[in-house]
Write a protein that binds this DNA or RNA. Structure first.
Lengths: 232, 232
DNA sequence: ACAAATATCAATCCATAGATTTACGCCAAT
DNA sequence: ATTGGCGTAAATCTATGGATTGATATTTGT
């Protein structure tokens, strides 16, 4: 992707101009890096990225006007080859998780040694994703907590397991937004039969209407292809 | 959690008895570890865990009868302090992702140096989560791909952004399974007003009924607290 | 200060959804 | 051979949902 022998082009976005200057000097010490721009404004940053298409963006996460998360999202939407490394003062698990989720390729704390930042830049430039092990640990704890609830329902208490296979088919079509007529047509059975099935589903799931049935299904691991939730 | 000076108690589950023996010998070389049991069967393994409540379980992922994923899930359901480290022959991103999702505290390849396994055990025993950087990279690539679709819908094409704040409130209540009457009561407005709002929502989201509206909302980032999908 | 968007409500009408009961053929388990 | 679960279906009834029109008060932007 990157031109042979050309310098790695880096853009810095940080509302703290002192920190901005410090990082710039740090990076300029490395002969193979080049800072193509610095700005304290996320908005201006986006425009600079469009203009210069840098290889790497170092993005401060704790900014007032437009926060780092949204800035990263905007950058990702541009679909350039620009890779974002998030910079933050704190190891806030939620922030790390969200930054990685929307496409940050790395996350480094400002308190970390400068060598770590350089290393992160190298790794990310090489196409890898880099999280220092401390942050990686925090990320995974948060990640697992996020999914813990989803998993904890045992098979015995998950009412979905009481459904017959035909009822599952019907419920699946319900979770795709079909009405009775649509389901009847798709399963080649009469509408009244569908009603019978749906009523049985309501009884088994202990709900009152199709919307609640659909919600129960989605929230309790019903494998629906359109990923309202990811199956284990 | 762990008794001072007591050895770290480890259980091995791997359907390949050769590998099982090898790992056992490897671990017994370490003076502060103790293998409390080994088995080639996941089912038996679960029972051994109940009985011995080991600190660490090394779980092979590629087993025939009951696969490693389900075994891990069963272990997690026991809610013991037993920590599972997954062992696998391949760096299958999907498998790594799913294992971590359901609660594995580490993931090590069988092809990795034995020192790496020992290190992983130490880290996990110390309460951390350990993924070698190679696997960590694979995990994050997979993780980001999983969420890429969800994020890519720009604000302009996401019909939810056309809703007024009141309509959002109403839709929120719809996604909780309320009917007209329930929504009217909760918002202290008449049922007919709710109908008006809901009709406007249908128009804006280009759907025909409440179920489709709810599905649209869930699939397009509508912040619902019960996290059918996680907000950014 | 004025236009446009929003929130509220009513009345009506038709379609769909949901509850209930009854029934029949099929298959699997005992 | 019989029972019980399942899938199929119909008939009937009531409740809820959804479309449409029209109206008024309030808020918001310029």
């Amino acid at each position: 992707m990157r031109e042979f022998r050309s310098k790695l082009r880096i853009l810095l976005i940080d509302d703290n101009s002192d920190h901005l200057r410090g990082v710039k000097e740090l990076i300029n010490l490395e002969s193979n890096y080049e800072v193509v721009g610095t700005t304290t404004s996320a908005h201006i940053g986006i425009n600079l990225i469009k203009k210069y298409q840098p290889d790497i963006v170092l993005m401060d996460m704790n900014m007032p006007e437009k926060d780092g998360l949204h800035a990263i999202q905007d950058i990702e939407k541009l679909e350039l080859n620009t890779k974002v490394i998030a910079l933050s003062g704190y190891d806030d698990a939620d922030l790390i998780f969200r930054a990685m989720k929307i496409g940050a390729k790395g996350y480094v704390l400002k308190t970390m040694a400068s060598a770590q930042l350089i290393y992160a830049i190298d790794e990310v430039a090489a196409g890898k994703i880099y999280l220092p092990s401390v942050l990686s640990s925090r990320f995974f704890e948060y990640f697992q907590n996020t999914f813990k609830e989803e998993t904890k329902l045992s098979e015995s208490e998950n009412l979905l397991y009481q459904l017959t296979s035909r009822e599952e088919e019907v419920l699946d079509l319900l979770t795709q937004g079909n009405n009775y007529k649509g389901i009847a047509k798709k399963l080649f059975i009469s509408e009244t039969t569908v009603k019978t099935h749906v009523n049985n589903i309501f009884q088994k799931l202990q709900v009152n209407d199709r919307t609640q049935a659909v919600l129960y299904a989605l929230n309790n691991g019903f494998a629906n292809k359109r990923k309202a939730k990811m199956a284990v």
